[in-house]
């Protein structure tokens, strides 16, 4: 195991975070605070409670999930796309490092950054609303699994993308809508029955639901199902990453 290589990639990626501190950390905090102002204060004042939880507190898990997903995706996709774009990837590919080590370095850093933002939002949210975490271990489990899974997914996008437009395509046009429609800001039980069924095809529903359950003990779908679905996405992402390295897809001709 080339631990030095993992550490080098990880430290390199984390250095990028500190270098672009505003973009990496401050801007997601600002945008999340805006969500609180808009959804929590403005709209929330007209919605009393959802399942016995104040609306402001109700949206906290969804907001954290939203940031976790988008941050994981953008960090990981950019982290691997940029060296491909500039050509510096040659060094990583010709180094005595296994594919596993390369992925651990890049995905580990992307997930760390996303979780950092998630924690900051959690702390920020605590300033706005009263909230509780009923199942902290489950909360951490969902938190970490989601960050890792979507960092892997981002890694795949970063390998697949041929240009900056494609790099933005999946996060903006697929993941963001799915997140907004995945019950981040509402319980899917508020929807008409037909749309509830449709929503169940949205993978984000399971992530948000499980995560919210760990906070308030209430969920749109069973927590076991949420965990199972999260693990399915993780396995699928791992499978694709393994395939990428086996075939050298977009990395080696």
């Amino acid at each position: 195991m080339n631990l030095h290589a993992i550490r080098a990639i990880y430290a390199f990626e984390m250095a990028r975070t500190w270098r672009t501190l505003f973009q990496s950390i401050v801007s997601p905090v600002i945008s999340t605070s805006l969500y609180f102002v808009v959804f929590g204060a403005a709209i929330g004042s007209r919605i009393q409670e959802v399942d016995g939880v104040s609306y402001g507190a109700f949206i906290v898990p969804g907001l954290i999930m939203l940031s976790l997903l988008t941050q994981s995706l953008s960090n990981a996709s950019f982290g691997i796309f940029f060296p491909r774009f500039t050509g510096t990837i040659f060094e990583v590919l010709s180094a005595p490092a296994s594919y596993f080590e390369i992925v651990v370095g890049y995905v580990g850093a992307a997930a760390t950054k996303a979780m950092l933002v998630g924690v900051i939002i959690l702390v920020t949210a605590n300033l706005f609303v009263d909230m509780r975490i009923e199942h902290p271990l489950w909360m951490v489990l969902f938190f970490v699994l989601t960050a890792v899974t979507f960092s892997l997914f981002g890694f795949i996008i970063g390998i697949w993308a041929k240009n900056f437009e494609q790099l933005q395509f999946v996060p903006l046009l697929i993941v963001t809508p799915l997140t907004f429609l995945g019950g981040s800001f509402y319980s899917i039980r508020m929807l008409p029955e037909f749309w509830q069924t449709v929503t169940l095809f949205n993978p984000v529903v399971y992530l948000v639901s499980g995560f919210r359950w760990s906070f308030y003990g209430q969920a749109d779908v069973g927590v076991g199902l949420s965990l199972a679905m999260t693990l399915v996405f993780l396995a699928a992402s791992l499978g694709v990453v393994a395939w990428i390295f086996k075939t050298g897809y977009r990395l080696k001709s």
Binding site: H4, A8, A11
Partner: peptide
């Protein structure tokens, strides 16, 4: 790399090679 310093990028290479 554009934004890295010279010594950081050289240290990175050494680590990458284990």
């Amino acid at each position: 790399e554009s934004f890295e310093t010279v010594s950081a990028t050289v240290n990175f290479s050494r680590g990458l090679y284990g």
